[in-house]
Nucleic acid binder design. Structure first.
Lengths: 344, 344
DNA sequence: ATGAAAGCGCTAACAG
DNA sequence: CTGTTAGCGCTTTCAT
């Protein structure tokens, strides 16, 4: 049953019914009696205004899109949960899209999202190859906020992590513990985040007076085998680093696996810091010292940006705005003093 | 720019434009020339039919809801990804809702989803207290499929795991390895899945001629502390079981943590099987033997049911249909022979 | 092969 | 305080 049928049933105008049922009774000074009568009848016949009609009329859908590379990745699933939760209160629904870490899929989905004329979009771009996406975004009139990455030269809100600072945090912690030779396991060459984090590590090392070859870097992919190869490259030698930072994703698992294979005890013989706190980090053996991103806060900022954009007049130009958040370190037991104090 | 403006621009009727742009050119025998002209102009002016108008007219939104207890849980995020992926091809979008494992939230979200008049709903119910939900579902006209759980006495499609069989699988594996004293760590009393799994374990043990007190069960919650308490209860005694099955969630992490604290080597002194294969299962130390649910397949079946329901005439009664899938065991290195052959 | 026109269900401007 | 009415953008029957 819809509003007009209900109106007919009650011998009232559809507008009156609409006003009451969309919560604007007092705004339009509908008499208490009529309002009650309508509410009661609506309840009885289970009538809820069809949002489709309302959307068409109002020109807004009450729904935004969330485009992530991999909902299966804890970082993104936490993000998704926080975002959905926050938007829920504003009565904004979230359409989920997963690009499977593929840029072409991401582009296709982006188009679909556009075609659906959602009210807005929060996107966590797949890779560093943001050119394709960049064009799409620029040519779209939809409010968009980018999360987890900054797309250079694009005038839109973005919320991201201060990756260099995060890397520095990890390195400083290791240096303070006495480490001189540090290894980094990278996810992939192209990852902008990994590069920044690496830069942070280098900075910290330079500030501590360490030289370039005190740092070894390996890893050319985020698959298990690629990570394992990287871990081998770092660990399978005599002058191996006394501490490893895994810059992203599941790299830590590869390092642990390889360390075990080599019989290296952690933290006695090898210290490790893992990027991205994970649900299982505290449960590992030993509990992992990790660098943790403020996921909920990132979600909050993204939502704030989005709401602001939604509130703007839709013909306003896209506004740039950048929120950069700081990571923190979760100190647990995977970092110790280096066994043999490193000699150069 | 919308269809009618484009039509005006081309001096054609809006209906013609609509027919071409919604891919029905040949169905309506639009001349090749006209069709091309429209397509070209649409391309040029970036005109895509607004799905909102179409939805209103056609009475279907091209979108379903997915209601899960916790998108952060790998099981559900995998489910979500598979479902979204499959539905994508049918041009059906997915609205994500996360009930945070709370029955009241679940009910509220369910109502919201109903109010949005989505085309259908896939729901993975939070708990065993399915009465509230049961009522809501029965009174709704929306095509719904339940996943991961069977709601007793409800005439709707459901896809679930044969949990008893899964439990049996785990127990049989342990028994074959020589274990006689088995412990189970449960997530919560109310979890229907855990109960079924436990039943499977008991069955296997009975068939192997083991007695009731060869089985110990502990655990009264899925939080970390509750799991840890359960793990203590199972492990902190002389006649501890030689093998543990963790019936759900993160229980395995608690068992590993406690075992480490007690200096129990796995699998030499304690064997473990974990429910639910996780991304990190193969990377643990030792790699974990797990019981794995066919997540993608479950998603596939749910989607199949949903599509069937969507195709039905909407005034048709809800059809019952039950698909029960089988778990499989991933044998890795966390199960070994018991050290001391168990004596009663 | 194309056009005209009737709605889908709703809201809001205008009228009383 | 309530009713009338004009669309929002589209699809589809009916007409030609």
């Amino acid at each position: 049953m819809n509003l007009s049928e209900l109106a007919q049933h009650l011998d009232l105008a559809i507008s009156t019914v609409s006003r009451v049922l969309s919560g604007n009774a007092k705004k339009y000074r509908i008499s208490e009696t009529t309002a009650q009568r309508i509410l009661a009848a609506a309840e009885e016949h289970n009538v809820i205004p069809d949002p489709l009609g309302a959307s068409l009329r109002k020109g807004s859908l009450g729904m935004i899109g969330l485009l992530v590379p991999d909902i299966t990745n804890p970082f993104f699933s936490h993000l998704a949960r926080s975002i959905e939760l926050e938007l829920r209160d504003a009565n904004i629904a979230v359409q989920l899209c997963d690009s499977s870490e593929e840029v072409e899929t991401e582009a296709r989905l982006f188009q679909k999202l556009l075609a659906r004329r959602l009210d807005g979009l929060i996107i966590a771009p797949v890779g560093s190859d943001t050119r394709g996406l960049s064009d799409l975004i620029e040519n779209s009139k939809m409010p968009i906020v980018v999360i987890d990455r900054v797309i250079p030269g694009l005038q839109i809100p973005s919320v991201s992590l201060d990756n260099a600072h995060a890397g520095k945090l990890a390195a400083e912690h290791l240096i303070k513990a006495g480490h001189r030779k540090i290894g980094c396991l990278r996810g992939s060459y192209e990852s902008q985040s990994d590069q920044e984090r690496l830069r942070g590590v280098q900075e910290a090392m330079a500030e501590a007076g360490l030289k370039g070859d005190d740092l070894s870097v390996a890893g050319k992919g985020s698959s298990r085998t690629a990570s394992l190869d990287g871990a081998r490259e770092l660990l399978d030698r005599k002058d191996r680093p006394t501490a490893i930072v895994t810059l992203s994703g599941q790299g830590i698992l590869a390092v642990l696996e390889r360390a075990t294979a080599l019989g290296l005890a952690i933290p006695e013989q090898l210290s490790v810091i893992a990027f991205d706190e994970q649900p299982w980090s505290p449960f590992m053996n030993p509990p992992l010292t990790t660098i943790s991103q403020p996921v909920a806060e990132m979600a909050g900022e993204a939502v704030k940006f989005l709401k602001a954009a939604l509130a703007e007049k839709s013909d306003a130009p896209l506004k740039a705005a950048e929120k950069v958040l700081q990571a923190s370190i979760c100190e647990r037991l995977s970092v110790g003093k280096p066994v043999i104090s490193a000699t150069k």
